[in-house]
Structure formats: C-alpha cells, structure tokens
C-alpha cells in the first residue's frame, strides 16, 4: 500500500529531513512512527500526501509513483488518504455535520450520498447527538473524533495521523486509539506519528523509529523504545 525506496528529502538550507529511507507498509497494517521532534515523522507523512516532493528516491502510495504523477492527479490521490492532525483543523464556523459533509461536497459527491454517509460516520465516532454543535462547543476528544470522521467519511484506503492524541488527556487519548483501531479493522491502513509512549506500548503494533531522518528500528508488535 505504501512503499518508500531509498527516499531522501532535503529542505532548503541543506536540512536532511529524511535520509535514505526504505519502507514497505502493507494493506491493513497499523504502523506507529516514533522519534524525537525533528526526526522526520511529519515530513514522511507530508511526502505520502504529495504535499512535499522527494529530493531523491521513490514514493509509492496506493499503487501510484508520486514522482511520476501529474500535479492535477494529486487531489485524486488524496481522496484515498484520510489525514488527522494534532490541532484537528476543523472549520469553526461550520457545525459538526457541516465539517464532515464539507469533505464530501468539495470532491463533488452527490447530495444523497452526503445525506447518508455523514450521519453514518458520526454514528461510528459516537457523535450523532452533536451534529448541530460547533467545534468550540466540543471537548478536545470530541473535536478529534469529528476530525477522524471527516478523514474517514470517504472511506479512504489509508489514514495518516500526525500526533492525533498530542492535545488530549490520557483517557481521551485511549478513546481516540480505540476509534483508530476500529477503523484499522475495516481494512484501512493506518500510519500514526506519535510521542505517546503509553499508547504505543499498549497497542503493540508495528513500530518504525526515526532518528535524524533515518529508520533506526522497525519492529512488528514493537514498543516505544
């Protein structure tokens, strides 16, 4: 599902964010990306969504070589990838329902699909009763669940999560992990960058550790380190 072949990413000013990384992630896997701040976790996620071009090497996502893909095809690639962030990135002037529906509307999904999919996904994340609430009326955990609903409403093949529990208390973080686990069980590949040792140690999933842009450890059923 995701393959990196000897990938290097150098930013302006010679910063090597990713340095010769090769990695293979199969369909349906759940992978934690761990490492200190600046180790290259977020850059790797941005390479996968084609927000950044690689400097060297090849990135394959959902069968597409991102180095060869036309820029106008990039949005179609992103429809196969859901993204979740530490700061949720919800639109404050839209309700919970509208925030999730927005993700379908802007890719041109018909109204009847929006009308059936959105309530279904809000049911899945346990927010059916808050459809008409605005983000600032929700707790952090609820906001993150809305963000996950938005990322998953289009049933993407891959879900990328960049520190999704970074702003949440331990109990809420557990809730979010249960949700991501549930999504993973539907066959969706989940890649999650995190600093949260407790969660990584508890889940015992594949762990890829980065340091200075290089993979220093890759373990099935691993721990934080």
């Amino acid at each position: 599902m995701i393959r990196l072949d000897n990938v290097t990413k150098i930013y302006k000013g010679d910063t090597r964010a990713i340095d010769g990384v090769s990695l293979n992630i199969d369909k349906g896997e759940f992978v934690f990306l761990v490492g200190e701040s600046g180790s290259g976790k977020s850059t790797m996620l941005r390479l996968l969504t084609a927000e950044e071009p690689v400097t060297d090497g090849e990135v394959h996502v959902a069968g597409k070589d991102l180095g060869q893909i036309n820029s106008w095809r990039v949005p179609y690639l992103r429809r196969n990838i859901g993204s979740v962030f530490q700061d949720f990135k919800l639109l404050p002037q839209k309700t919970v329902y509208e925030n999730v529906a927005f993700a379908l509307e802007v890719i041109g999904r018909p109204r009847n699909i929006v009308a059936t999919q959105v309530p279904a996904i809000l049911e899945l994340v346990g927010l059916s009763h808050k459809q008409q609430s605005f983000p600032d009326e929700l707790s952090g955990g609820e906001q993150q669940r809305v963000s996950i609903a938005r990322a998953f409403v289009n049933r993407p093949l891959i879900l990328l999560a960049d520190e999704p529990t970074g702003n949440l208390d331990p109990n809420t973080a557990q809730e979010i992990m249960r949700l991501l686990d549930r999504i993973n069980r539907t066959g969706t590949t989940v890649v999650m960058a995190t600093h949260d040792q407790t969660i990584v140690d508890q889940m015992r999933r594949r762990v890829v550790a980065l340091r200075s842009g290089q993979v220093v450890r890759d373990e099935q059923q691993g721990v934080y380190g």
Partner: peptide, 10 residues
C-alpha cells in the same frame, strides 16, 4: 487547506 487535504481539485 482542508479542501486540499481531502482531495478537492484546484
């Protein structure tokens, strides 16, 4: 930003 994230075309 959100539109780009979820795959809206330019």
């Amino acid at each position: 930003e959100v539109m780009k994230l979820v795959g809206a075309t330019n």
